[in-house]
Design a protein around this nucleic acid. Structure first.
Lengths: 210, 210
DNA sequence: TATTTGCAGGGGGTATTTCCCCTTTTTTTA
DNA sequence: TAAAAAAAGGGGAAATACCCCCTGCAAATA
């Protein structure tokens, strides 16, 4: 019986090794590679090395994060199932990961048995959702996703700073009035009515990092 | 040769098991208990079970976090060395953990060898500081810690909200002018000159949670 | 080709924030 | 117990933020 190949992508060596040991104890699975960040995933597949059926993907990684790496995989290796693994159960992060193409989402505080279950279910059904994630999905799909244009995002990033709008205008080489326009648009999209509200929303939804 | 006893406190079963396996491979150390949160630490010692020389303590845990558990240990079992373990290298968290009495601070993305080194150094010198942590300490001690009074903290918490100052005044049953006074004081303490700056500072320093 | 859509910018007004100056009362502390 | 500091409140003004309605232009699209 040939084992199902798995790749682990995580920058935490200790955790990564633990996973490795655990999975290799499972009868039907084996780890074929252990990578440290998203960039290594791209390099790995560009070098045409042994592929895998499932990739266990951390979300927070240096150089290239799990979301970008998953997007790349959807483009270039759509047959590979990506199972997201993360410490925090932040709604926006779960959503971003699922939007990027992950077929499931596991918190790192799971029990070993749960991992095996998840792997089996992915091989059987193609997806694995815990109740938590399912709930998040329902909540999120009921409300339309907020899309920001490049300029708006740039403005928002600068607005999450102690610069005044006038100074932001100068930084972006735009008139104050144009910035005022962006402000209005973002206010509308976020459904807020103050700069503080806008900034807090952006931080909560992880649109801008602190 | 009798091995040095270690207790692991972490709510992440997978990680905890990995640590356990790793440490038991070290010649001079053995894991005597594996606990899931701070409350279990207190219960464990209250039940008078086998003690340890070193406790590897996660910071973020449910029920009772690593900071509170470390404070309890300093009070009740001051002879035990606590080595903090965490995912994030947030300065304020490192500081809080060291203030609580941890004798060292390790990021979870360390290499196994680093862990052994840390354990050895703690047994030899009583402390283990990486360069990162040492730098943080220097930075933190060189700048006076910012102390907020109860009312100021309450004001600040409400300021990290889309309420206007006038609405904050109403919520706190104070005049707008009094709030304006708090604003000025907090601005001074944080060395900022706008509400946005104040809020961002409070979030960065984890004075207020998002 | 006519129309919509997106982007940059403007006029003008109100509300809020920021920053000075100040008084009174209570609480701390020397 | 007298002096100092902290807490609460205020006047007034300038800067900034917020809001609505409007123009011109270019690219996309119908």
């Amino acid at each position: 019986m040939n084992k199902i190949p798995i790749i682990i992508v995580d920058d935490h060596v200790l955790f990564s090794q633990a996973l490795n040991g655990l999975i290799n104890k499972f009868k039907s699975y084996k780890v074929v590679a252990q990578l440290n960040n998203g960039q290594e995933v791209i390099d790995y597949f560009n070098a045409d090395k042994e592929t895998a059926s499932i990739i266990l993907m951390d979300v927070n990684m240096p150089i290239l994060n799990g979301i970008k790496a998953t997007e790349w995989l959807k483009e270039n290796r759509p047959e590979i199932k990506v199972l997201a693994l993360t410490m925090n159960d932040d709604e926006p992060i779960i959503l971003n990961m699922l939007r990027a193409g992950a077929c499931g989402y596991l918190l790192k505080d799971i029990h070993p048995n749960t991992l095996l279950e998840a792997l089996n279910q992915i091989m059987r059904l193609g997806v694995y959702y815990t109740d938590d994630v399912a709930q998040t999905l329902v909540k999120a799909t009921s409300q339309k996703p907020i899309e920001l244009k490049d300029r708006e995002l740039h403005f928002l990033t600068l607005a999450c700073t102690d610069l005044t709008y006038k100074q932001i205008a100068e930084k972006m080489f735009l008139s104050y009035k144009t910035i005022d326009g962006y402000r209005e648009v973002v206010f509308d999209k976020f459904n807020v009515s103050s700069r503080i509200g806008m900034v807090l929303y952006a931080l909560k939804e992880k649109i801008v990092e602190l």
